[in-house]
Write a protein that binds this DNA or RNA. Structure first.
Lengths: 262, 262
DNA sequence: TTAATTATTGCATATTATTGCAATATATGC
DNA sequence: GCATATATTGCAATAATATGCAATAATTAA
C-alpha cells in the first residue's frame, strides 16, 4: 500500500484518468470491493474525483457504485464473492511482501485464490518472469503485462473458484518444473499440515507442490492452526510463510520447524 | 530518453510524421501510456502536433487518445456492456442463427474470436452442452452458465487475441472428439479456402477442424472472397456457413459446392 | 526548372473538461 | 434522535482541447 501511495505521489501531476480507472478495476477484481477514502489516499485525489470516477465506470457497466465505494457489477468473479473482500488490507500487505521474492527469469506457479491474485495485480512492469497458473482471474490480470509470459493449465472449468481442475490440469503441471510456487492457503496447521475444503483443489495443489523447488505460502493470520477436510502437504514442505502479522505467537511452531516467516 | 532527445534535436528538420508515429507506438507498448508534453519534448514538436498525431493513431485504432496523452487499446472487452463495438448488429444476427444448430448433449468447440463470443453470450439457460475452447473471453462469458460444462485448452497465452496457442493447446484439442465446431472466419475464398493473418492461430484451427465432425463457419458477408497469408482448410471441409446476408450473390459458389447457407 | 497546390506545423484564441472545495442535504449506525 | 459519514450541488481555478490562421515545407503540374 505504501509503495502505491509513493508512486501516486510522484506522479500526481501526470497520472491519467484512465490509469486511475485501471487501478480501481484492479483493486475491485482482487478485493471485490473498493472504498472511496481508500482509493482517494492511494491515488492522491479527492474523494469527489473518485466518486466521479466510480460513477463513470458505473455508467460503462464496469462496476456498481454503492455508498462509500463500489462493488463488481457481476461480470467476472461472481463466485469469488463468497470468499473475498473482508481482509483486503491484509491481503495487500501480504502481496507486497511477496514481491521481493520474485526475480527475473524465474518460472513461478501462481496457485488459484485471492492472495495470489493480489500479488499478480501488483507485479512491477519491468519484472520478467514466466507465470504458470490454472486461475482465470490471474490470467485476466496479467493479460496486459508486457514482460510476463503466461502458461495456462487447461482442464475442466471449476466454476466456483474460477480455476481449471481435473486430470488434464494435473497433467499440465506435471510437465512444469517451477522455481517457485505461490500457494494460497485455506488452512494450515503446525502438525497436521495444509488442508482445503475442496477435493479437486487439493489434488491440483499436491501436484503443484511436487513440481516446485520452493513453496511460498500466503496466509493471513487467522488461517493458522485451522484444519479442513482435504490434505495437501505437510508443513515441512513449505519454505516460507508470508503473513500480515509476522510477530504473532501462533507462528512459533513454524519458526521452530525451520520455516522462514515474513 | 536522452538519446532520443539528442536524436530528435539533430534531426529536427528531417523527422517524418511516420517516424513520430513509430516512436509514439513504441513508447506506448513499453510504458502502457504516453503523455502529451513528454512526447512533445522528446520529439521536438508542439503539443498540438502530438495531439493531432494521437488523434490520427486513434482513428486508425492503434491506440486510445485520452486527455493528457494516450493509452493502449485494451485487448479484450473484459466486461459485458462494452461489447457493443464487438457485437455489431451483423454479429448478433449470426449468433442468433447459430443457436438452433446446438443441441443438448453435444460437445461443441468454440473457436476464439468475437463471432463465437457473441454466440456464447446468448446461449439459452437450459441448453446442456459441453463447450471446449481456448478463448478466455468465452470462458468468462460461460462461467455463470449453470448447464454448460466448459473444458479449456491450456497453453501459452497469446495476449493479442486472448487465447492460448502452441503445442500444448493443440495437444489438448487432439484429445477431443467434438460433434460440432463453431469456427470464426477471418477470410474465406471459394477456391482458396479459409485463411487467417496469424500463423499460430491457423495451426490451432487446423487441429480443431480435424477433430470436429461438423464445421460451422461464422462469417459476416464482407469476409467472403478475401484471403490472408495462412491457410487453414479447403472450403469443402465446411458444412455450413452462417452469415448475415444469406441472399448475397457472392455465396453462389459455396452453394454450388454443396455447403449449407444460413 | 518554376509556379501552383497541398500538407504540416505552431501559435493565439475560445471552448470544454477536470478537479477540489464549500455549503447543504441525505443516509447510516448507535 | 444524534453524531458521523457519505452524497449532491454549485462554483472557481486550472489544465487540456478545438479551431482558425499564417508560415513553412513538401508535392505536383506545367
Amino acid at each position: 500500500m505504501h509503495i502505491i501511495a509513493i508512486y501516486a505521489a510522484q506522479n500526481r501531476k501526470t497520472m491519467l484518468k484512465e490509469e486511475r480507472f485501471k487501478h480501481i478495476l484492479n483493486r475491485l477484481s482482487t478485493d471485490n470491493k473498493v472504498l472511496l477514502h481508500e482509493l482517494s489516499k492511494e491515488l492522491n485525489v479527492s474523494t469527489d474525483t473518485i466518486r466521479r470516477d466510480l460513477k463513470e465506470l458505473d455508467d460503462q457497466g464496469l462496476l456498481k457504485a454503492v455508498r462509500g465505494g463500489a462493488v463488481p457489477h457481476s461480470p467476472v468473479p461472481h463466485n469469488f464473492k463468497d470468499r473475498i473482500g473482508y481482509n483486503s488490507e491484509s491481503k495487500q500487505i501480504i502481496a507486497q511482501k511477496a514481491l521481493p521474492l520474485l526475480q527475473d527469469g524465474q518460472v513461478v506457479i501462481f496457485d488459484g485464490g485471492t492472495s495470489t491474485l493480489a500479488v499478480a495485480s501488483i507485479l512491477p512492469e519491468d519484472l520478467r518472469i514466466t507465470v504458470v497458473t490454472n486461475s482465470f482471474p490471474i490470467v485476466t490480470m496479467l493479460a496486459e503485462h508486457k514482460n510476463v509470459e503466461v502458461l495456462f493449465a487447461g482442464g475442466r472449468l471449476f466454476k466456483r473458484s474460477f480455476v481449471t481442475t481435473g486430470h488434464e490440469t494435473m497433467r499440465f503441471f506435471k510437465n512444469i518444473r517451477a522455481d517457485l510456487c505461490l500457494l494460497g492457503i485455506c488452512s494450515i496447521h503446525s502438525s497436521l499440515g495444509t488442508t482445503t475444503p475442496d477435493y479437486e483443489e487439493s489434488e491440483v495443489k499436491k501436484v503443484i507442490i511436487n513440481n516446485s523447488q520452493e513453496i511460498i505460502a500466503l496466509s493471513s493470520i487467522e488461517k493458522l492452526e485451522t484444519v479442513e477436510p482435504y490434505y495437501i502437504c505437510p508443513t515441512e514442505d513449505i519454505s516460507t510463510i508470508i503473513t500480515n502479522q509476522p510477530k504473532e505467537a501462533k507462528l512459533k511452531p513454524y519458526i521452530e520447524a525451520g520455516i522462514q516467516i515474513v
